[in-house]
Design a protein around this nucleic acid. Structure first.
Length: 544
RNA sequence: GGCCCGUUGGUCAAGCGGUUAAGACACCGGCCUCUCACGCCGGUAACACCAGUUCGAUUCUGGUACGGGUCACCA
């Protein structure tokens, strides 16, 4: 068989040689130990948590080592592509603070190793495809989907492994004339790798899983589809080699196709990148765990976290705790450090499927927002509101000073409050600071009847001096409490409930509900000073 | 079904032949306190199973069970 003739028949227009590609995309000049990583999402319009999870690993590895982190769009499946999906990926990554050094950007590419969209790299793949044909390692296959179905049925009946290999690879040894004939008859063809029939094993060192042993590939898998676009397998090998990736980070669902990739790297004579197969994110259902599913679990979509207003930092910290078991300890030891200072390592990666624990995320989120300055909270919250809650955005822009002051409530001291979990919840929690959104949600305590209420509020207003400091203010509250026959010390009331109408707890609750509309809210004195004297007096007057 | 990966409390997880088997979240008590939140103190709770190696296995080996992944011209 004249493989050269076959190659020219299949790829008449390809003149470039593999060396030309090597020269076009030279080795990167980076410091020793620098990692080059990437994410390769396919533009389906759906970005999952798993995408972000792998992105974080790549980002950390690259940027911790002075390397490069890039975005490659894996759009080889034109059937699945959704319009605008590339923008969706880019904006989601940007929302969560994942920054690329090069790769696909809105409207184009940025970097010297592009194009970064696989559909635009067709000519590059064809150079290597032709080269493989010339060496007898790849061949055109004219099998139709129906013919393949028949083969599969036969294999299943015989309890053999399904697939095109060995004797089932009907087009393996077509003569060049037969190929010519098929082509001129208009038959479609795919390019298949010529798999070696063997039962030997290969060993691959995975950076998170250690040594992996699996059977060597024996399949005649597809390299180029009938439209000339490569399959994932071929594109991955060519791209990660030419873009000079040092580490390939991907989900464990790729483990079973690893033998194909190893085979191709071998056939092309290239050094393999370091593989890092990460665990699948799981979810609790009933008594067991299961993989997060796109249809059933809204929390799989990144858009869910955006809509809920989970801050980008919270997601980072959450994923970091899942990714590296020592992150939490590090965080406790370094409460104020930037998470980017955490020394991330692949060795500390967990290999079993982690459960997405929304409770834990909430807890982390409270800490993260609690650590922010009021100004930063304001900024982040506002930018979320501008996207998802315009009316609240208007409101906090109308009262910026009051809002920042409100966000500062409870920040002082060494036990700062942690009231805010998400930006969405912040809109609920903060609503009492604005007359526009203020509502009385809770009932007055039953110990305070209408007469007590009117009496208390009248006395309170009368003695109220906005300039009082916290203790002067509270002394006045205590005085009125006593005058009304309520216990000044809660413990006294607890001991002798019959001697009092109630305790100061009920009195302050009543005051708190008048001011904030709810029984649970931050320090009354502090809140009053955020609201300002007019609002305080008005809200109390409503109860007279 | 073949191949591959995994299995420590409810969840995330330390551990890498000898430990009272860390820690975090959640949960339950208590303290603090003008409510809530925060914080602090305490509590419940785990090595899937069976063999083997060993003086000794959570840790090493084999098998079983269970869970997961994958077997496309999808990634």
């Amino acid at each position: 068989m004249d493989y050269n003739a076959l190659a020219n028949l299949l790829f008449p227009d390809v003149t470039a040689q593999p060396e030309d590609m090597e020269n076009r995309f030279p080795q990167r000049e980076l410091p020793a130990g620098a990692c080059v990583t990437r994410i390769g999402p396919s533009p389906t319009g759906f970005v999952h948590l798993g995408n972000l999870y792998n992105a974080l690993i790549g980002e950390r590895l690259a940027h911790q080592s002075g390397g490069v982190f890039y975005l490659r769009i894996e759009d080889t499946d034109n059937k699945r592509e959704v319009e605008g999906a590339v923008e969706t990926v880019i904006s989601a990554m940007s929302y969560f603070g994942v920054n690329f050094d090069e790769g696909a950007v809105s409207g184009g590419d940025n970097g010297n190793y592009g194009p970064y969209r696989q559909r635009q790299r067709e000519e590059i793949y064809h150079v290597f495809a032709k080269h493989l044909v010339q060496r007898g390692l790849a061949y055109p296959c004219f099998l139709t989907a129906e013919e393949i179905d028949v083969i599969r049925e036969k294999q299943t009946a015989n309890k053999e492994n399904p697939g095109i290999y060995g004797e089932y690879a009907a087009c393996r040894d077509l003569s060049i004339d037969q190929v010519k004939e098929n082509i001129s008859a208009g038959k479609e063809w795919v390019l298949r790798y010529r798999g070696v029939q063997t039962d030997e094993y290969i060993a691959v060192e995975d950076a998170v899983r250690g040594k992996l042993e699996m059977p060597r590939n024996n399949m005649d898998f597809v390299l180029l589809k009938s439209d000339g676009i490569p399959t994932y397998h071929f594109a991955h090998v060519v791209d990660d080699h030419l873009m000079r990736s040092t580490h390939v980070i991907r989900g464990e669902e790729w483990l079973s196709s690893l033998p194909m990739h190893v085979e191709l790297f071998g056939a092309l004579g290239w050094e393999m990148p370091i593989y890092c197969h990460t665990a699948t994110l799981m979810k609790m259902e009933g008594t067991g765990k299961r993989k997060l599913s796109k249809r059933k679990d809204p929390e799989l979509a990144l858009s869910y976290y955006q809509q809920e207003g989970i801050s980008a930092d919270s997601i980072w910290e959450f994923l970091l705790t899942v990714l590296n078991s020592n992150f939490e300890e590090w965080r406790i030891a370094n409460p104020d450090a930037d998470y980017r200072d955490f020394p991330y390592t692949l060795e500390k990666m967990s290999i079993s499927g982690a459960l997405v624990d929304l409770d834990k995320l909430r807890n982390i989120s409270k800490d993260v927002i609690g650590r922010m300055t009021a100004e930063n909270v304001y900024k982040n919250w506002l930018s979320w509101c501008e996207e998802y809650d315009q009316t609240f955005a208007e409101l906090i822009k109308k009262y910026p000073e009051r809002t920042v002051a409100a966000l500062n409530v409870g920040k002082g001291g060494n036990k700062p409050r942690k009231d805010l979990e998400t930006w969405k919840q912040a809109c609920v929690f903060m609503s009492f600071y604005y007359d526009e959104t203020f509502t009385v949600a809770d009932e007055m305590p039953e110990e305070c009847d209408e007469e007590t209420r009117k009496l208390f509020f009248a006395k309170y207003l009368e003695s109220y001096d906005h300039a009082d400091d916290s203790s002067a203010w509270f002394d006045k509250v205590k005085t009125i409490t006593d005058e009304l026959g309520f216990a000044v010390k809660p413990k006294d009331y607890k001991k002798n409930p019959d001697q009092f109408k109630g305790s100061i707890v009920h009195i302050t609750n009543m005051l708190r509900i008048a001011l904030t509309g709810r029984a649970n809210a931050p320090d009354i004195h502090e809140v009053s000073h955020v609201l300002g004297e007019d609002i305080v007096r008005n809200r109390i007057k409503n109860w007279l």
